[in-house]
Design a protein around this nucleic acid. Structure first.
Length: 269
DNA sequence: CCCCAGGCACATT
DNA sequence: AATGTGCATGGG
């Protein structure tokens, strides 16, 4: 689903074939897949780092998608402390219960629920979608939905701000938006390709490859697989942005997939 | 029964 | 400002 468009896509060589039940404007697809990024020059710039260059060679092709900000925000609020299959299931439940149903031949799917649907939802109905933190999280989602639909949270304005400013603005809404969620929303939906979200996996990758450049106590905690302290987060994320610059977000995605390949975690997806 | 999964908010110090 | 702790689903 891209917005409320159901799409089937297949890549054969350099050709991308797209099918849909009704005509879909091409820009919706190319915008979602970030065809406006000059991937060649991005990869060339990131390749200046020899360790990252090897990582990129092992991982292969990656694209970052340009998500709808509201969808992205909800997705990462819901994701906290969950496995990827669990995240998918929760989001799917939310769409099935609150989204617009789309039928195409034998395929049935649902659009992502509008903020108005979530702000008016009964907390108990949200909890039924198997939210990891139950009622508390249901209230977080409702609050955010309210901020978005009344315009208190203005995604267009956030896009115009520089990274640091947009990040503190996002985090000031609380209700489930911390460092990680804010950086993910900035990277995947608000045009901040320099954002460098840090989860346990990215922290492990950076601690392993760039140990010398980090605070040694942070490296110790990360290698012992402790939960990340705010200090560790800042240490790794600031390093990522300094090291990889305006396309740090792409570097982050390569590091994330690389370390999961190393640890055999990709089968969990 | 145990463990842990793409963290965050809040209480203590 | 730093550190500790509760949260409370589901799959292995």
């Amino acid at each position: 689903m891209v917005g409320e468009e159901m799409i089937r896509m297949r890549q054969t060589g350099d050709l991308l074939e797209v099918e849909s039940p009704r005509p879909v404007a091409e820009f919706k697809i190319t915008r979602y897949l970030r065809f406006d990024d000059d991937l060649g020059s991005i990869l060339k710039e990131l390749s200046k780092d020899s360790r990252l260059r090897e990582v990129m060679a092992e991982v292969g092709g990656i694209r970052i998608v340009r998500q709808d900000p509201w969808e992205c925000l909800v997705s990462y609020i819901v994701s906290r402390n969950c496995s990827i299959p669990m995240i998918r299931r929760t989001l799917d439940n939310l769409c099935r219960k609150f989204g617009k149903k789309i039928v195409w031949e034998e395929s049935i799917d649902y659009g992502f629920p509008a903020p108005e649907m979530i702000s008016q939802a009964e907390p108990s109905e949200l909890v039924k979608c198997s939210l990891r933190y139950g009622r508390r999280q249901a209230l977080e989602l409702r609050k955010m939905a309210e901020f978005v639909s009344e315009g208190t949270m203005d995604f267009a304005a956030l896009k115009r701000m520089p990274y640091e400013e947009a990040k503190s603005a996002l985090m000031s809404f609380d209700n489930g938006v911390g460092n990680k969620v804010a950086d993910c929303v900035l990277l995947f939906s608000l045009e901040k390709l320099e954002a460098f979200p840090v989860d346990v996996w990215v922290a492990r990758a950076v601690a392993q490859l760039y140990q010398k450049h980090l605070d040694s106590e942070s490296v110790d905690r990360i290698k012992r697989e402790h939960r990340l302290t705010p200090k560790d987060y800042k240490c790794v994320s600031d390093f990522g942005r300094r090291r990889f610059g305006r396309y740090a977000g792409y570097a982050q995605e390569y590091l994330y997939h690389w370390i999961r390949l190393q640890r055999g975690a990709c089968h969990l997806e």
